[in-house]
Nucleic acid binder design. Structure first.
Length: 427
DNA sequence: TCTGGGGTCCTAGGACCC
DNA sequence: TCTGGGGTCCTAGGACCC
């Protein structure tokens, strides 16, 4: 049996932890650049504030009901996430915990008798709340997909379920399948949902679970779809995965605070994003061989509806994989010259590092020149200082100093748990 | 005026090889 | 008139996730 543990309205809960007067008050958290709404408290949901909706469109509603609004504060969320995951590892042993996202983890519960699962799930929920202040919901079932389904139902009906739902009998599974619309199944996105309903008249998970594996393979993305159908039938087909220690691709991309038309601003932004991506690369002891850069133009199109704008990208392959910021910034900035067109306005840029290999020489390498080893020490010093002081105390000149393009983040709360100078004060 | 960021996996199709 | 079969590797693009 598997469990999925999912933090309730995670980002909003993090904000509330340090602002207890907001308990029971509507709260929302915005995406980067204060663009969209990415987390809502139950009260905000009830008011009709929509998930992933643009902030400016929800603003009248938000102001009318005095909803508390926060820019996203990833330092805070990341740290609280770590505390939640540590609690789970402490309870079940680290080999039974798979961190799936910042606010979700799968647990493998095979060692427990089925009749104890309800109590265990309850204990998990209570311990996490006790230790971290974060409320979670727990769904338990024979497969990961069914566990997600259980979790969703637990959350939907908090009073009755107390945020715990265990599908330990055939009847409970069928009932849960029946109650789940096809678009709410984990692994069915917008496209497939439309196709299932329009082409096949499949509206709920029970109907989908009665389809054949071949159907899944043919119409829901090959082996992925086949696996999905099997999981719905109760045949576990997604095992626990090892924690993804090394990423295959590392990206840093941002919207600009306002549209940018100056190539030098774009170069500064790209240099900054490259520095950040290189930091992530070094954290996993990797070195990258491919540097890609993309820019997104601001659409001149005034037609109704939201236009995603055109993305233009290009990449370069380095002769030798590297993790040194300076060696990555140079090619990245050169790529901007290839992409930039004078007279156009840009709203976003990004850097991606791929072709990632383990940086063998990280332990020191006899054949490495002395200067390389010096550079490596320099990089690790920069990382340490930036980490312990504040972001970007030390940066490369190419990143610029004025940063006119920097994203908006006007409503961010303090980084209470990761910065001494922003420690929460109680008066 | 104003719509995020960071990932994964899979498939199809082309280039190339023997 | 008529021109194989099997494999690998790479890339672009689509779908999904939170």
């Amino acid at each position: 049996m598997y469990a999925i543990v999912d933090c309730n309205n995670f980002y909003c809960s993090c904000e509330r932890l340090f602002k207890p007067h907001l308990d029971k008050q509507p709260v929302v958290v915005l995406s980067n650049n204060d663009g969209c709404i990415i987390s809502r408290s139950d009260e905000a949901k009830k008011l009709g504030v929509e998930m992933a909706g643009p902030y400016f469109m929800a603003k009248p509603l938000i102001e009318k009901h005095k909803v508390a609004v926060f820019s996203s504060n990833y330092n805070l969320y990341g740290d609280l996430s770590w505390r939640v995951m540590e609690t789970l590892r402490m309870l079940l042993g680290k080999h039974s915990v798979e961190v799936y996202s910042v606010d979700e983890a799968f647990l493998k519960l095979d060692i427990f008798p089925v009749e104890e699962l309800q109590a265990i799930a309850k204990q998990v929920r209570e311990t996490v709340e006790q230790n971290t202040g974060i409320k979670v919901s727990v769904g338990v079932a024979p497969t990961k997909v069914l566990a997600k389904l259980a979790n969703r139902l637990a959350k939907k009906n908090k009073e009755q379920t107390k945020c715990v739902s265990v599908l330990d009998t055939e009847e409970k599974i069928i009932e849960a399948l029946q109650k789940t619309p096809v678009e709410d199944i984990w692994g069915v996105g917008r496209q497939y949902a439309v196709k299932l309903k329009e082409d096949w008249c499949i509206y709920d998970a029970l109907q989908l679970s009665n389809m054949s594996e071949e159907f899944g393979h043919k119409y829901l993305g090959g082996v992925v779809g086949k696996r999905l159908i099997r999981e719905l039938k109760g045949i576990s087909s997604r095992e626990m995965e090892d924690e993804l220690v090394s990423k295959k691709m590392i990206a840093t991309t941002r919207m600009f605070g306002s549209p940018v038309g100056d190539i030098n601003d774009i170069k500064e932004a790209v240099a900054t994003y490259t520095s950040r991506a290189a930091e992530k690369l070094r954290r996993q002891n990797g070195a990258a061989k491919i540097v890609s850069v993309f820019v997104v133009t601001k659409e001149q199109n005034h037609s109704l509806g939201f236009n995603r704008g055109g993305t233009i990208s290009t990449y370069t392959t380095l002769p030798v994989a590297t993790s040194f910021t300076n060696e990555l910034i140079k090619p990245a900035v050169q790529l901007v010259d290839k992409l930039f067109e004078r007279g156009k306005l840009y709203k976003k840029a990004g850097v991606m590092l791929s072709g990632i290999v383990p940086d063998e020489s990280v332990q020191g390498n006899l054949f490495l020149t002395q200067t390389k080893n010096c550079e490596r020490k320099l990089m690790s010093m920069i990382d340490n200082i930036n980490f312990s002081q504040r972001d970007d105390v030390l940066k490369f000149a190419a990143s610029g100093t004025t940063r006119d393009w920097k994203m908006r983040q006007e409503l961010r709360s303090g980084r209470y748990t990761t910065r001494w100078d922003e420690l929460h004060e109680v008066h």
